[in-house]
Simulated scan of single mutants.
Amino acid sequence: MNIDKEQIIDYQKIDRANDFYNLAPGNNRYRPKQTTPIKDLYLARDYTLQPYFATMEGAVTSRIKAAKLIEDQNKN
């Protein structure tokens, strides 16, 4: 998949693993949603924004959310 760098409007790099996996209040802001500003690119892993942080259940929940977004997109 070729990504046109002109389409990237925002990004962030997390340098310290503790910032991302730390369960302290306020760290949810580092977790991305399943949608992205790039057409047809969706995220589905345990690190995405969903209720089960860094677990197998979280990975499955994220996949279901991403699949639903793709399904909804294809209905239109």
Rank of each mutant, 00 (worst) to 15 (best):
residue 34 Q to F: 03
residue 8 I to H: 02
residue 9 I to H: 13
residue 39 K to G: 03
residue 36 T to N: 06
residue 49 L to H: 07
residue 59 A to M: 02
residue 43 L to K: 01
residue 23 L to T: 11
residue 22 N to D: 11
residue 27 N to K: 12
residue 52 Y to G: 04
residue 65 K to H: 11
residue 17 A to S: 13
residue 72 D to K: 09
residue 66 A to F: 01
residue 48 T to M: 05
residue 69 L to P: 00
residue 28 N to T: 14
residue 8 I to Y: 03
residue 55 T to V: 08
residue 46 D to F: 07
residue 6 E to L: 09
residue 21 Y to G: 06
residue 31 R to N: 04
residue 40 D to M: 07
residue 31 R to M: 06
residue 41 L to H: 00
residue 59 A to H: 06
residue 9 I to Q: 14
residue 27 N to A: 06
residue 5 K to W: 12
residue 39 K to V: 07
residue 71 E to C: 10
residue 27 N to V: 07
residue 43 L to Q: 01
residue 25 P to T: 04
residue 43 L to G: 00
residue 50 Q to P: 02
residue 18 N to C: 15
residue 55 T to R: 07
residue 35 T to N: 11
residue 14 I to H: 02
residue 43 L to V: 02
residue 10 D to I: 08
residue 55 T to L: 09
residue 49 L to S: 08
residue 21 Y to P: 01
residue 55 T to Q: 10
residue 48 T to R: 00
residue 20 F to R: 01
residue 66 A to V: 00
residue 15 D to I: 13
residue 11 Y to M: 05
residue 29 R to K: 15
residue 62 S to A: 09
residue 19 D to F: 06
residue 61 T to Y: 05
residue 3 I to R: 03
residue 27 N to W: 04
residue 51 P to W: 06
residue 51 P to Y: 03
residue 13 K to R: 14
residue 36 T to F: 03
residue 63 R to C: 13
residue 9 I to W: 05
residue 53 F to R: 07
residue 32 P to H: 03
residue 39 K to S: 05
residue 26 G to M: 02
residue 57 E to D: 12
residue 49 L to A: 14
residue 18 N to F: 12
residue 68 K to Y: 03
residue 67 A to C: 09
residue 23 L to N: 13
residue 47 Y to F: 15
residue 36 T to H: 05
residue 54 A to K: 05
residue 5 K to E: 12
residue 19 D to C: 06
residue 10 D to N: 11
residue 30 Y to Q: 04
residue 8 I to M: 04
residue 47 Y to G: 11
residue 60 V to S: 06
residue 6 E to T: 15
residue 39 K to N: 10
residue 75 K to G: 02
residue 76 N to F: 06
residue 50 Q to I: 03
residue 68 K to H: 09
residue 17 A to D: 08
residue 35 T to Y: 00
residue 22 N to H: 05
residue 9 I to F: 10
residue 3 I to S: 05
residue 71 E to A: 12
residue 72 D to N: 12
residue 70 I to C: 01
residue 42 Y to H: 02
residue 18 N to W: 14
residue 1 M to L: 14
residue 20 F to S: 01
residue 63 R to W: 05
residue 44 A to E: 00
residue 74 N to V: 15
residue 4 D to V: 09
residue 52 Y to W: 10
residue 7 Q to F: 11
residue 24 A to C: 07
residue 9 I to T: 15
residue 60 V to R: 03
residue 71 E to L: 14
residue 25 P to Q: 01
residue 37 P to D: 13
residue 25 P to M: 01
residue 13 K to Q: 12
residue 69 L to M: 11
residue 55 T to F: 02
residue 71 E to Q: 12
residue 4 D to F: 05
residue 8 I to K: 06
residue 41 L to N: 03
residue 62 S to L: 04
residue 36 T to K: 02
residue 60 V to E: 01
residue 2 N to I: 12
residue 3 I to E: 08
residue 72 D to E: 10
residue 51 P to Q: 09
residue 71 E to H: 13
residue 19 D to E: 13
residue 23 L to S: 09
residue 3 I to T: 06
residue 37 P to C: 12
residue 22 N to Y: 10
residue 39 K to F: 07
residue 76 N to Q: 09
residue 27 N to C: 07
residue 58 G to R: 00
residue 2 N to K: 15
residue 64 I to F: 12
residue 72 D to H: 11
residue 31 R to Y: 07
residue 20 F to V: 04
residue 29 R to F: 07
residue 9 I to Y: 06
residue 18 N to E: 15
